[in-house]
């Protein structure tokens, strides 16, 4: 199966779920909390003509205030900690957080040092972890789908209001 076929199948499943939960589209704000920039290369790739995630209802927005989900990359550096918290607080509830890449999952190779605070979940609640260094675009799409499953469960359990 080619990359294109794989994305087509996964994208349609994702689209169904977005339709069910959000009505039409899911808005994502990407935050680089200190990444090496390769994770950004893959987030950028999501919008190229091969993946073209907009067709599945995923939209990368310019402001956290317009977002349903934060996609965070990188270990949280000492110098980005405050900016990450402010961005998180600016996202309206209910909100989802996806930690993208080994660094965001647990600090990765940069670990826990004077400059790097480690994984994103030490600073804000994380709903889904997308491993990889960097994760391939397909893995990011899959991760977003898992996050939506989680949100659906939360809605069913009435933990959040849709």
């Amino acid at each position: 199966m080619t990359v294109e076929d794989e994305i087509e199948i996964m994208g349609q499943r994702l689209n169904d779920r977005i339709n069910k939960i959000f009505g039409r589209s899911l808005h994502i704000r990407e935050v680089d909390a200190g990444s090496c920039n390769a994770c950004e290369v893959e987030v950028t790739a999501l919008s190229n003509p091969v993946y073209d995630i907009e067709r599945f209802g995923l939209h990368i927005v310019a402001s956290p205030r317009h977002a349903d989900m934060l996609l965070v990359t990188g270990p949280v550096t000492r110098n980005m900690e405050l900016a990450l918290l402010k961005t998180y607080n600016a996202v309206p509830s209910p909100k989802l957080v996806a930690a993208m890449g080994s660094c965001a999952c647990n600090g990765g190779i940069f670990g826990d040092t004077y400059a790097s605070g480690g994984g994103v979940d030490r600073f804000i609640p994380v709903d889904v972890y997308i491993p990889g260094c960097p994760p391939r675009p397909g893995a990011v799409i899959f991760g977003i789908m898992v996050a939506l499953d989680k949100l659906e469960q939360k809605i069913r359990k009435k933990e959040v209001r849709a």
Partner: peptide, 26 residues
């Protein structure tokens, strides 16, 4: 995005250090 890379090099074994070099500017 200062991640303390140069200090980190001093802690890593030589094999691992190559992986760190690959992650300075991804």
């Amino acid at each position: 995005t200062h991640k303390g890379v140069e200090k980190l090099f001093e802690r890593l074994s030589l094999d691992k250090a190559v992986f760190l070099a690959e992650r300075i500017s991804g």
